[in-house]
Design a protein around this nucleic acid. Structure first.
Lengths: 366, 366
DNA sequence: TTGAAAGCGCTAACAT
DNA sequence: ATGTTAGCGCTTTCAA
């Protein structure tokens, strides 16, 4: 076995400071049960505890308190998720912030992605976690309703499914598309193309973005031409889940738009950053320069936007805030010292977009 | 409070199957203490347990077993770390694989990065974790020796410090540099530049890569010219820790190499991918094309390499394996059912590099 | 073959 | 002001 220093228990501290474990417990927890401990004793105990490096045993406290002070975070095992891009990281940082404030821990539930449903439910069933953040979940995760039967202390971040009693932190997709188009219009673009998803199972998110494009084009008086939309119809096929969809879509979209000649849009808004980048890369490979010949922008503002050349204009989620809000909710409804009653009502918060203007979009000299 | 179905305990299962909790415990754990339970009873208990959805309470078991079956993972709060790039994700996936195999959990220790030392030590002191994976730690983390006093069940992945009794999974930096140079040489390059780090506190890793460059250049008979090395001397200053060092270095390096005119290298090896990409981006912005005018490659093979244009040739770590090996070690030395004696010897495993040839490197027509 | 009970370390109600 | 103790849910030894 490994060498791990024998941790001191309440008993050890009590012995060293010549008192009972109850007194020690009272002192180290800063007065909950017995408030009445003499200053002299308090002093002695504190010192002994410090000397021994006493820390309450996690499992013991959990058992007694019926609360593990731990949140779980779950990510679906999509090929593009978890791969980085700072997307999950940004959200986690928000969750972590809330956890730190309330002295909670963070458990990674099943990044590997086998048996997701069981893993999530087991963590609750074993009382390992008090709450769970589901990242980027949708209706393909058909086990969510079952999970909610075990515990309702669950919040989805960037949820795009239809389970209406699931707490969720949402992104205003329509506003994001609108903001992007306004940016392009303000630069003088009138003929704007849109790249939509060609995935086999289209996400609600993606769908909303496409709809918002149609609506905004009309509302803003932009060129309304069916030829400006790249989607699975133009792609000719649907992309299987295991493929690197964004690269495929973006590349094909680039080829499609390049083929339009005179009718080529002067700017392109992609439903996400990866497809925007793939499109830009394709243009580059055939000698079309961004932003000189065409402006391109994405949505989501993943870290990658700042690393490509030219840097990609995008529209960002406030992911840290979303994570923070989600985690705070879960903590408020589980921490014994807060004991906030669950209103019973599902919460839904919608977060607005922010424009991140970079090099890939520029004025269009007519 | 939140609605969480009251979890069934041993008692509940015992009542339903008309026996004592001892029998239930024996059955659900598949025969450890009392092996002798009648088939009929075994049957009844199993059914009752299944019916109630019984799962052992995590904290309770931990308390009894003196083992939390949980590993911690720590990442230093560097600006470029945790930001994504798939680097940490790849390692975590390996750790997770080992955890799943042995039914361990994964705790995220302090991604936010305040008070790192205390967080890591507290998790051990509270018996919250049985082992800890330290990612990308070096001698700046001066609390590591103190941590090891609390528990030796710690493994560092991609360690570049000098604490020699710390278990570590290492990357063969010299081999990586050599492999990169061999690749370039095989393409016909003879005059190869190197981008080193200009960070204020230079990592051991980085240092090793620089040394390996010198050695390999000599050993392989490549052009040996001081002008081919870009480092803080040529940079004129050191980069502060909070700056986006790689972008700064890479960009400056690009400007430097571009200024060499006739003496410009035909290929460049950067000490990491981000600086290679920044260099390539700078070249692009001044009309130098990769790989037509110059080949560029990095080291580490972060996800980003596949997303930029042209895609970046690199040399990869086997991060999932490193994570898996680290976690397996920690589990072997903490799981009660394995009870492997700690040999007392520090383990060090060195993992070899793999070339990932992509578009950014090409034949040099002399 | 089954059950009773100790004990893991802690908190808090209650006794002194 | 301080101490005693029940009990959280589990495993395992020992008794029946």
């Amino acid at each position: 076995m490994v060498r791990t220093r024998n941790r001191p228990t309440l008993k050890d501290v009590a012995k060293l400071s010549n008192c009972s474990i109850a007194v020690v417990s009272t002192v180290v927890n800063n007065a909950k049960g017995n408030t009445l401990v003499s200053d002299e004793m308090r002093q002695r105990v504190s010192e002994a505890a410090r000397e021994l490096g006493y820390r309450a045993h996690f499992a013991s406290r959990t058992l007694k308190e019926k609360c593990s002070r731990t949140l779980g975070v779950y990510f679906p095992p999509l090929p593009w998720a978890g791969a980085g891009y700072g997307y999950e990281g940004a959200m986690i940082r928000g969750v972590e912030k809330a956890c730190r404030e309330f002295n909670y821990d963070l458990l990674l539930v099943n990044m590997a992605g086998d048996n997701d449903a069981q893993s999530c439910m087991d963590k609750f069933a074993e009382s390992r976690i008090d709450g769970l953040v589901l990242m980027n979940v949708d209706d393909q995760h058909d086990w969510v309703p079952k999970l909610l039967e075990i515990s309702s202390n669950v919040v989805a971040v960037d949820y795009s499914g239809k389970v209406d009693h699931l707490n969720a932190m949402l992104f205003d997709n329509a506003a994001a598309v609108r903001l992007g188009l306004e940016h392009l219009q303000s630069l003088g673009h009138q003929r704007i193309g849109f790249i939509s998803s060609c995935k086999k199972h289209i996400h609600q998110d993606t769908f909303e973005r496409k709809l918002a494009f149609f609506d905004s084009v009309k509302a803003m008086g932009l060129d309304d031409d069916e030829a400006l939309i790249f989607d699975s119809k133009k792609m000719g096929r649907s992309i299987e889940p295991e493929e690197d969809c964004c690269t495929i879509e973006g590349t094909k979209a680039g080829a499609y738009f390049a083929s339009l000649g005179d009718k080529r849009p002067t700017a392109i808004l992609a439903y996400n950053d990866l497809s925007a980048i793939a499109c830009m890369n394709h243009f580059m490979s055939v000698g079309i320069q961004t932003p000189r010949d065409v402006s391109i922008m994405g949505i989501d503002d993943i870290e990658l936007c700042q690393r490509v050349y030219p840097t990609l204009t995008s529209v960002s989620h406030p992911l840290p805030e979303m994570g923070y809000t989600a985690a705070s909710f879960l903590i408020k409804h589980s921490a014994p010292e807060l004991r906030e009653k669950h209103s019973g009502k599902t919460i839904r918060k919608v977060f607005g977009p922010t424009l991140m203007a970079r090099q890939s979009t520029a004025n269009w000299e007519k």
